Computed example of a mutant assay.
Amino acid sequence: MSTRRTIAAIALALTAPFALSACGTSFGAQTNQQYQAAVGSNLRHGPVEVHNGLFVDNGDGTATFSGALLADEDQTIESVSVDGAAKKLARPIQLKADTLLTLGPAGEIVVKGDEVAEGAYVTISFAATPGGDASVEVPVVGRTSMYESVAKRPSPSATAQAAEEESAPAEPETDSDDEDTSPPSQ
């Protein structure tokens, strides 16, 4: 065997493992696997989807739910349970079909309990009508600057606004043809 052939054979033997190692990943390579880069948990099936759901520990024995909810059809959530302990919401959460609703800044779901403390995982179940229950295990995180927009307790303005909307009298309809419905002049 010539020196050139020997050198070529050694070079091929040394580079072959590197060249062929990429072939072993096949179609199941980790780059094709789903992963969750966010801190919160996701539930992507059922009557109500939960996106980046988590509780923020308020440091006073309470925690506020933060996340986004999505449903295929209109849903109403009047209560939730956290690790089996049911809690009726101060006002129902209305989900419109195919519309993402972000919870947290208004403090829609605030729970109290020793099990809802920083570092724990708890199971929250949403009782949705007409769809049924949707449950997901979510982490409880500490209140940091990242979560400063999450309310520590229900927002009084949101509660007052909901009460106002429920008790506001309907505007009387007028039968008068005196109304000017023409576009404003420029």
Rank of each mutant, 00 (worst) to 15 (best):
V110I: 12
S135A: 15
L95E: 05
I124E: 08
V138Q: 10
A127I: 01
V141I: 09
T76E: 10
E115M: 06
L70H: 11
K88W: 09
P130N: 09
A168Q: 15
I93M: 06
Q94H: 11
S79I: 07
V136T: 14
R143E: 07
V136P: 11
A163Q: 13
T129N: 14
A160L: 14
D133Q: 12
E148A: 07
V80K: 02
A162D: 12
V138Y: 03
T76K: 10
S135F: 12
A158K: 03
P92F: 00
V141P: 09
A86Y: 10
L101F: 04
K88T: 15
E78R: 12
V80F: 04
V116P: 02
L101E: 11
K96M: 04
A86M: 14
E171Q: 14
Q94W: 01
A120K: 14
Y147P: 06
A163D: 14
G132D: 08
L70N: 11
A170E: 09
A158L: 04
A134G: 12
M146C: 01
E173Y: 08
S155I: 06
Q161D: 10
G113N: 08
E73C: 00
F65I: 01
A160E: 10
L70Q: 05
P139R: 03
A90C: 00
V110W: 02
E165I: 04
D133R: 02
P139M: 03
A71H: 06
A90D: 11
V116R: 00
V111L: 02
E173S: 15
Q161K: 13
T129A: 14
G59Y: 14
E115T: 09
D114S: 06
P156S: 08
G61P: 05
A97D: 14
G113Y: 08
P169Q: 15
D72S: 12
A63L: 05
D74F: 01
S81T: 08
K112G: 07
Y121W: 12
V150I: 15
E78H: 12
L101N: 07
R143S: 06
I109S: 03
